[in-house]
Design a protein around this nucleic acid. Structure first.
Length: 555
RNA sequence: GCGCCUGUAGCUCAGCUGGAUAGAGCAACGGACUUCUAAUCCGUAGGUCGCAGGUUCGAGUCCUGCCAGGCGCACCA
């Protein structure tokens, strides 16, 4: 429709120029958009205003000239010049009817586009160390990462979801030590449990499990070997827990990628050698440094310490090289906001490798403020007392949690109140939207029971031309905007755009529902309205699905 | 000190690559269920878009400087 209007304008402008009403045939890019206020029509363009300088004419004069020379079009009911020179188009109701056919035809693919042109994108998210269960921060990251992946996929990208497992380095050794010391305690040995070890009860449980399986065997090994065995075992158990918790949260990955494998395959070593050969890595004070400053970081960063041990940055360089080697056109990392200082150095590594860091995006998810009845909930991973992702799913449910995490831009911090989240009140937007779906399901069931439709008829059998109420036209307009909303969400990597859209659609539906009966004594009218609400139901379902929220048939 | 994010109604937040009269929800007040689910709807009230400059036909939106809050600034991960 926007393209149609654009051609209409350009056609009018060209003819106006031929007639001598315009002074130039150099027409600048115009914007075609839906105005904020309904009084300003359905579609509006700033053509006359942006043309003012090249035409050396007043915008309103330009608009007059263009409109006078425009082809007539039956879907346009009225054209007006408004404000400083906007050209507003008012569309006839029937301009919106084809949307319904498209929704029925595309069904669960309605909203898709080829915006991404099949480009390969990797979305890596959560990637928490396997040293303990996932907590609220991870939950927000999981909701965002998964939704972004859904949206990109819907918008025509080929998406891969990945979890990076930090199964190497000091934290894993600390994990092994923590389990080993707990196991020693269970073996009856007098050992001190350091404060920098993991304090949570899950460590004791893992130790007890291991104790039962191979306690004696471990007790006879030397400590280093025992710690290493404990580390491997514990990381596996915890990772399995993480995987299961994520599945319960509706998140599944295409690939789990091990940091350790980067060392095992020699990739880290190769990356270091490669960059050293190109003088991007150099030696100073006995350590190996990466010239990140040359690529915009505030200073150079160590990749190999003077004790010969690589830093986390070293494997991260190798990891990101590996991602691009796998053929992704675009790589997206979802990180907690506390890691923002890391962006520059990864960008530097990518630029230094000859690739372009604009193929790499980091989604920084701001922190979650966990509350209960307005009071902050103490979160201390040190003491092992924190609210886990599993706790949240158990207490408030997957749908409410995901919907709330995606209700705001991740650029802002989020207050997540457990009590509000689990209440089934109007303060909780998830039910507002799901209710639309359930209500329509109820209507369709009643329609079937009352034989409004014949047994062999689809819900889309009705005559669209009978949809003339303002509330119906409004719904049609919102439905028509879904594909561009998905596209916008994909372009900006912001899932909350979908949230906002769903709230608007839900609000329009509830208003309609309260004002008009779908099933009326007039059978023909009923059939038309069934067509409409059937389409609303499909779009609500598609939108919720992008956010990873279910669309219930009844509530 | 430096960097990233944020500052819009009493509260929580939308506001698309600058566009016309800044919008929702909650809370407040007043209404609507013998009706397809009231987990809903309709109405009223509520704003110096943190402050000050700048850019231009036009700024909540872009630039600069302040102020306030959150988070980071390791040979940790």
């Amino acid at each position: 429709m926007k393209e149609f209007i654009k051609q209409l304008i350009l056609g009018g402008a060209r003819r106006a120029f031929d007639k001598g009403l315009l002074k130039s045939d150099d027409f600048p890019e115009m914007e075609i958009e839906a105005p904020r206020h309904e009084a300003h029509g359905d579609i509006s363009t700033n053509f006359a205003m942006v043309s003012a300088s090249s035409q050396k004419m007043a915008p309103r004069k330009i608009a007059e000239a263009v409109i006078s020379c425009m082809d007539p079009a039956s879907v346009i009911e009225k054209t007006e010049i408004a404000g400083p020179g906007f050209i507003n188009f008012f569309l006839a109701s029937r301009a919106w009817y084809p949307t319904l056919d498209r929704i029925v035809k595309e069904d669960d693919r309605f909203g898709c586009s080829d915006f991404g042109a099949g480009k390969k994108v990797q979305v890596e998210f959560v990637s928490a160390n396997p040293t303990g269960p996932l907590h609220v921060g991870h939950a927000r990251g999981a909701a965002v990462g998964d939704a972004v992946a859904n949206i990109l996929s819907f918008a025509g990208f080929e998406v891969q979801r990945e979890y990076y497992i930090n199964d190497s380095g000091r934290q894993i050794r600390t994990l092994g030590l923590s389990v080993w010391l707990r196991l020693c305690q269970q073996l009856g040995r007098e050992v001190e449990f350091p404060t920098d070890c993991y304090q949570g009860d899950y460590i004791k449980e893992i130790a007890a499990d291991l104790h039962g399986r191979m306690g004696q065997e471990l007790a006879e090994k030397d400590e280093a070997e025992a710690v290493s065995t404990c580390a491997k075992f514990a990381a596996n158990v915890i990772l399995e827990g993480i995987r299961a918790d994520l599945v319960d949260f509706g998140v599944e990955y295409d690939q789990w990628f091990s940091e350790e494998s980067l060392y095992a395959s020699g990739r880290v070593q190769r990356a270091i050698e490669d960059f050293t050969a190109r003088d991007v890595i150099y030696e100073k004070d006995g350590a190996q440094w990466f010239r990140t400053e040359r690529y915009g970081d505030e200073k150079d960063r160590v990749v190999v310490r003077n004790n010969g041990i690589t830093t986390y940055f070293a494997s991260d360089i190798a990891y990101h090289m590996e991602k691009f080697d796998r053929g992704f056109d675009r790589v997206i990392d979802v990180w907690g906001a506390d890691h923002h200082g890391y962006i520059n150095r990864i960008n530097a590594a990518i630029d230094a490798s000859g690739r372009h860091s604009d193929q790499f995006n980091v989604i920084l998810v701001q922190l979650v403020n966990l509350l209960r009845n307005g009071q902050p909930v103490a979160m201390s991973s040190r003491s092992g007392e924190f609210v886990t992702l599993k706790d949240i799913v158990d207490e408030v449910g997957k749908d409410a949690a995901r919907f709330l995490f995606l209700s705001r831009s991740y650029d802002s911090g989020l207050d997540f109140d457990l009590e509000v989240a689990k209440q089934k009140t109007s303060e909780n937007p998830v039910y507002y939207v799901q209710y639309v779906h359930a209500r329509i399901a109820g209507i369709l069931m009643k329609a079937a029971a009352e034989k409004v439709l014949n047994d062999d008829e689809h819900p889309w059998a009705g005559n669209k031309e009978l949809l003339v109420e303002p509330e119906e036209i409004k719904l049609l307009k919102i439905l028509a905007a879904f594909p561009e909303t998905v596209e916008k969400s994909a372009a900006t990597l912001h899932p909350h755009v979908i949230f906002t859209y769903l709230m608007e659609l839900a609000s329009a539906f509830h208003g309609y529902y309260n004002r008009h009966k779908v099933i009326t004594p007039d059978r023909e009218l009923s059939r038309s309205r069934i067509f409409l609400v059937f389409a609303v139901k499909a779009v609500i379902r598609n939108g919720l699905q992008l956010l990873g929220v279910s669309a219930p048939e009844r509530m």
